[in-house]
Design a protein around this nucleic acid. Structure first.
Lengths: 224, 224
DNA sequence: CCGCTATGTCATGAAACTGTGACATGGAGG
DNA sequence: CCTCCATGTCACAGTTTCATGACATAGCGG
């Protein structure tokens, strides 16, 4: 399922985990030292790293820190010691989760999925914002269960806004992203298109719930 | 730091957690039932929900499922039972983390931060100065949890000040950075704009907590 | 070729924003 | 204590920005 990077120095634990995770459908690559792991991150770009904390050489927490410095790669720390302080230090180092050994394979699997789900929620095909469902794969938009017809340009603009939820996007950016940059910068084109989308997806277009105007800057898509 | 929705039916645990989280700098709203929590999610848009699993009426896992149906809101489940199956079910319901009580406040805090960090790494970059939150991606400013409306120029000026916390910025610099250089240097423009911002973000405008006047030089933004 | 949809442009009015100047205030130094 | 000058306060009108609806053109399928 996912390209997992596993780092664990105890061979028997490593083999057991690798087997268990593989059985859950993941594809696993494992190492026994932090240096190897960092090389792997750089060259092979795994989807998630699972690091034992107690490692010879660079320890897991430090590996996590270095990964964070260069990448957003999700990290789960794994340890025999469940000391409160260790947990805090591990999470502060940028880990996404901290799991105490021994751990049931299905629990570890569930935690891996939880972390990946969160990471992928931004790149997934379907996003739900209250009543509004935007399906990027099928290129469909539905409001309260009813499908809404958007024209191609409207759809591209909405997708662009939805790709950056909560962010203000200015008109110049949107012009370049949705149209090509052959257009003049001070055009009301974006405005007009936003109005058309609002007319279709906003229950009360005068009080937009989804696409908000930020005077002087641009537009912001955010859930109601 | 974060607008937390806490749901816990045991009053003593609820009070203790609320106190502990508040002490960590979070702003917490708590309820004892899932129904109330769902209403709160709809109307108040918290940043993260912490749900006890065992609740009268709708249980925490079900609350989590319903939140997921309508929103991307991060959820941490909290429970006394650390049964493996419970963990798996909770995470499959869409929770981002699953924490077993009793939990050290600083551990819970670290886990909250880990989840928020992951969520925010893809959304906005916000800076917090005490009660004041400046979100540079969403171009939003909030004071003690209440959103403050700033006009474009006010916002640009505040962002410029916030970009250099602790530094004194003179009027000429601010004029060039925020306005275009077509303005004369000896105008009251900057002063007037600073006043307008103060009127909005300073609890006591006469004794500014954020934007300090440095007589003869300019203005300095620094946390209270 | 015709009709229909999609899309870009424009005019208009309403609302929000902003610069300005006049005046008040208050602090620092003499 | 007094004076001066930097800063705070305020109101208002000119300007900017945006929503809305109408309209012209282009593109496409029938």
């Amino acid at each position: 399922m996912a390209g997992i990077l596993l780092v664990e120095d105890d061979p028997s634990v490593r083999t057991a985990l690798e087997l268990a995770l593989t059985r859950q459908g993941h594809s696993v690559t494992s190492y026994s030292t932090g240096e190897e792991a960092l090389d792997h991150v750089r060259s092979r770009r795994p989807e998630i790293a699972i690091l034992d904390v107690m490692l010879p050489g660079i320890d897991g927490v430090e590996v996590c820190r270095r990964i964070r410095k260069m990448d957003q790669l999700p990290v789960i720390l794994l340890t025999a010691r469940g000391d409160d302080l260790d947990v805090v230090v591990g999470l502060e180092a940028g880990a996404d989760d901290y799991v105490v050994k021994p751990v049931e394979p299905r629990v570890l699997d569930a935690r891996i999925r939880a972390v990946l789900r969160r990471v992928e929620s931004v790149s997934s095909d379907r996003i739900t914002f209250g009543d509004l469902v935007v399906d990027r794969g099928a290129l469909k938009v539905a409001l309260a269960g009813r499908e809404i017809h958007l024209t191609p340009t409207e759809l591209r603009l909405l997708l662009e806004l939805v790709r950056h939820p909560g962010q203000v996007l200015n008109r110049r950016y949107l012009l370049r992203a949705v149209w090509d940059h052959t257009h003049v910068a001070d055009s009301r084109l974006v405005d007009a298109c936003v109005q058309r989308i609002r007319a279709k997806i906003e229950p009360v277009p005068a009080e937009p719930a989804f696409i908000h105007t930020v005077r002087g800057f641009g537009y912001r898509f955010s859930p109601p």
